[in-house]
């Protein structure tokens, strides 16, 4: 486990932002931290980055309780990006890298590596305010990873990025992950969760309402839906045997069917084969994360 959250509580005045939350982030995973606005994600992230401390419970990074050296092992990119506008790009990166514990020489070396990688070597003496928003995002990303953290926390890392830069950053995240960096990924974009994450936790009203491996969660939430397409007309009486949920455009040869158990899928196939229906497509429909998110958040809304 790279990160272990154990029974953490955070209160502000009378309001409990994080309410007895526990979960583990496996080493080397891309971990989705999900939840609607105001669920307590930022409060949680601020405790992990040691900006604030928990009122109860404990957090462990790589087996060690959070301490004053923790910030140097974490790279955090907040959703609201910010840089010193009047500073030169090179000096800015040097400053933040040194604050993360790198020596000046080391920081220069690392920054140069990223400048070469992103082909932005001539930006060193530019002022931050002279850069476009997308360019500033790249700089922000470099500040997050320059000190080679064990754990990266990225809050909506692709917001405001064009498709080219999104791909660029996505590839870098994957590359870092393959090199062993664990990543916590906070986003509202569920298609990105499905694409990138292997584990997730869903927070609502400060509570952990869903936690586990992405595939396992999808399986747990599946409703035994199957989609059938056929070049023939479906046999008369099909609707009496099976629960047909939808029939797109009133078609006679394409349906979505819900079974009581997924093990009955063979029964469905056998029925169709017995009735000489030529099947052109047969698939199980797994829930999208969007659906799971909405469903679980809805269920836990008091």
């Amino acid at each position: 486990m790279i990160l272990s959250i154990q029974n953490v509580v955070k209160r502000y005045d009378k309001y409990t932002a994080v309410d007895h939350v526990s979960f583990d982030v496996p080493k080397g995973s891309i971990f989705g931290l999900l939840g609607p606005n105001g669920a307590g994600k930022t409060s949680l992230i601020r405790m992990i980055t040691t900006i604030t401390g928990p009122d109860e419970g404990a957090i462990y990074l790589d087996g060690e309780k959070l301490n004053e050296r923790t910030p140097e092992q974490i790279g955090y990119m907040p959703e609201e990006r910010g840089l010193y506008k009047k500073m030169k790009v090179g000096e800015h990166l040097l400053y933040l890298a040194q604050l993360k514990g790198l020596s000046e020489a080391n920081a220069r070396k690392e920054i140069k590596f990223w400048f070469d990688k992103f082909e932005i070597a001539d930006w060193w003496n530019k002022k931050v305010e002279e850069l476009s928003k997308g360019m500033q995002q790249k700089i922000q990303f470099i500040t997050t990873v320059v000190h080679q953290p064990k754990l990266l926390i990225l809050d909506e890392p692709f917001s405001g990025l064009d498709p080219i830069n999104t791909t660029l950053i996505k590839d870098e995240i994957r590359r870092l992950n393959e090199a062993g960096t664990s990543i916590i990924f906070s986003t509202h974009r569920m298609e990105q969760v499905e694409e990138m994450c292997d584990h997730i936790v869903l927070i609502n009203h400060g509570k952990n309402v869903l936690y586990g491996e992405v595939q396992a969660i999808k399986n747990a939430f599946k409703q035994n839906l199957f989609r059938i397409e056929s070049s023939d007309r479906l046999p008369a009486g099909f609707d009496e045997h099976f629960q047909v949920l939808s029939r797109p455009d009133g078609a006679v040869s394409a349906v979505t069917v819900q079974l009581e158990q997924d093990s009955r899928s063979n029964e469905l196939l056998r029925y169709l084969i017995d009735h000489n229906v030529r099947i052109t497509r047969f698939e199980e429909i797994l829930p999208t994360f969007n659906e799971i998110f909405i469903r679980r958040v809805g269920e836990t809304q008091n």
Binding site: R46, T49, T50, I51, E68, P71, I74, Y76, M77, P78, E80, R81, G82, L83, Y84, K85, L96, L99, K100, Q140, T143
Partner: peptide, 17 residues
């Protein structure tokens, strides 16, 4: 200024307030 241009959140993840 630091608060409004949000650099402070980045800073806070490196140094104590």
């Amino acid at each position: 200024e630091e608060k409004t241009n949000r650099i402070v959140e980045v800073m806070m993840s490196s140094v104590r307030p």
